[in-house]
Simulated assay, not measured.
Amino acid sequence: MTSTELPEKLAEIRDDFLALEEQDRLLLLLEFADALPALPKRYEEHPDLLERVVECQSPVFMFVEVEDDAVHLYATAPRESPTTRGFASILAQGLSGLSRAEVLLVPDDYPSSIGLTKAVSPLRIRGMTAMLARTKRRLREDPA
């Protein structure tokens, strides 16, 4: 994978958004919000293990772990914040299962590439960009 290529799942998500009219992209984002994977019990019972993404307007917490070089991103966001929740879901679903190297190669501007820059505020896009950056930082900090 070159630095300009996307992993298959992220490319598929991007292409699904770009295939829609702008107003329908928000509906797809809401579908992602509803599909945010539940936290594993070990994080539900220990929310202190999750890291707050302070760049997000809504309270978003996440944790990145690597098992057998497969990345898993877990996130939680309130149901009252469907945009933020949708962005967390896109990343959780799109990054999970990728190798550490694949995640580190995801372009930092991926959140801007899915066609939502006119439909949601720049602040919300920055929140998703921060979630991706935080994920990459975690992977670099813990190379084990």
Rank of each mutant, 00 (worst) to 15 (best):
M1L: 11
T2C: 07
L6N: 13
P7L: 02
P7I: 01
K9G: 00
L10D: 05
L10W: 05
L10Y: 07
I13E: 14
F17G: 12
F17K: 12
F17R: 13
A19V: 04
L20P: 07
E21T: 14
E22K: 15
Q23T: 03
R25L: 08
R25E: 02
L26A: 02
L27C: 01
L28P: 13
L28R: 15
L30G: 11
E31S: 15
A33V: 02
D34Q: 14
A35Y: 01
A38L: 12
A38Q: 14
L39F: 11
P40I: 06
P40D: 05
K41Y: 08
K41Q: 14
R42Y: 12
R42V: 13
R42A: 10
E45G: 04
E45S: 13
E45C: 02
H46A: 13
P47A: 11
D48N: 15
L50Q: 06
V54F: 15
V54A: 15
V54L: 14
E55N: 13
Q57P: 00
P59L: 13
P59A: 05
P59I: 10
F61Y: 14
M62Q: 13
M62T: 06
F63E: 00
V64N: 08
V64P: 09
E65W: 01
E65Y: 00
E65S: 10
E67M: 02
D68F: 02
D69M: 14
A70N: 10
V71Y: 05
L73C: 08
Y74V: 00
T76G: 03
T76P: 00
A77K: 04
T83Y: 00
T83K: 05
T84Y: 03
R85H: 00
G86R: 05
F87G: 07
F87P: 00
A88D: 06
L91V: 10
A92I: 01
A92H: 05
Q93K: 15
S96T: 14
S96I: 02
L98K: 15
S99V: 02
R100M: 04
E102Q: 15
E102W: 07
L104F: 08
V106K: 04
V106E: 00
P107Y: 06
D108G: 14
D108W: 06
D108E: 15
D108F: 12
D109F: 07
S113M: 15
I114C: 09
G115V: 04
G115K: 08
T117E: 11
K118T: 12
A119G: 09
V120R: 12
S121Y: 01
P122F: 08
L123H: 08
L123G: 05
L123C: 02
I125M: 08
I125N: 04
G127S: 04
M128C: 14
T129N: 03
T129K: 12
M131Y: 03
M131F: 01
M131L: 14
M131K: 01
L132N: 03
L132K: 08
A133C: 01
T135I: 07
R137C: 03
R138S: 09
L139G: 06
E141Y: 10
E141C: 11
P143F: 05
P143C: 04
